[in-house]
């Protein structure tokens, strides 16, 4: 199993104050890694650091077998102008933005790849529809197709199901596990939903202010930190 991404001793934060500290983890080909943890433990910040959107304060991120910019990214939600004019096809093609700085137009090969990824995600028949008028689930698929154009190996998700209804959520997890198992896609995902995370992932990174956990999902389920987290959650529910 080839390692795609290795993070050692990472610290990230704002204004000289670390939000995330002493985090170690690695991601291999075919992994489905979930990042879980309470609010404010810096899940999204850590992810932004991996994406290169915020600078590291300490530690190293090694990208093996991955060139910079070969990571596909799915934002939590796109906060867009209600009437942003863009067709599905235009959005998917924009995944190639990081390629070919000097060449102004999309190549034939890129157009083929965009068609392929739209086929894979079954959005080909709506490729001329406006993006903003799609349902949450279809928007997600479109963004995933775009992520495939940027990168074939690794896709990073930030709370992918946060804005989806239950049916679309179930669809999404089905699709994700299909892509992971049958297409060898490696996934790193920030998630709120710990039950689902445990069900689908093979590795877990649990961020915690004092000590973070990183290991296989099987080990995680037997760990102290997981038990406490679940208990706290149950109590929280009973209080409601």
């Amino acid at each position: 199993m080839q390692t795609l991404l290795r993070c050692e001793n990472i610290a990230v934060g704002f204004d000289g104050k670390a939000v995330v500290e002493n985090v170690n983890f690695e991601l291999c080909e075919g992994d489905l890694l979930c990042i879980v943890g309470e609010n404010g433990t810096g899940k999204t910040t850590l992810m932004n650091a991996v994406l290169g959107l915020v600078p590291l304060m300490n530690g190293t991120i090694q990208m093996c077998e991955l060139k910079k910019g070969e990571i596909g990214y799915l934002p939590q939600r796109i906060n867009k102008h209600q009437s942003f004019p863009a067709s599905v096809k235009e959005v998917v093609l924009s995944g190639f933005v990081g390629k070919s700085f000097l060449f102004p137009f999309y190549t034939k090969d890129q157009k083929c790849r965009a068609d392929d990824s739209m086929r894979m995600l079954q959005i080909e028949r709506i490729k001329n529809k406006p993006f903003v008028e799609l349902s949450g689930g279809l928007q997600q698929r479109t963004l995933l197709a775009r992520a495939f154009c940027a990168a074939k190996k690794l896709v990073i998700f930030d709370e992918p199901v946060a804005s989806l209804d239950p049916i679309a959520t179930a669809d999404f997890y089905k699709l994700l596990s299909h892509l992971n198992k049958d297409h060898g896609l490696s996934v790193m995902m920030v998630s709120h939903d710990i039950e689902e995370a445990v069900k689908y992932s093979n590795k877990i990174l649990h961020l915690n202010h004092s000590k973070s956990f990183f290991g296989s999902t099987d080990d995680y389920v037997n760990s102290e930190i997981y038990r406490r987290f679940i208990e706290a959650k149950k109590e929280g529910k009973e209080d409601d």
């Binding site: 934002p75 924009s94 102004p104």
Partner: peptide
Amino acid sequence: FYNKIFAVTFDEDFAKAAGA
């Protein structure tokens, strides 16, 4: 730069992560 400008306008974070 039409295509690049579109990608950046549509989703700046994604474009940055994709190496643009």
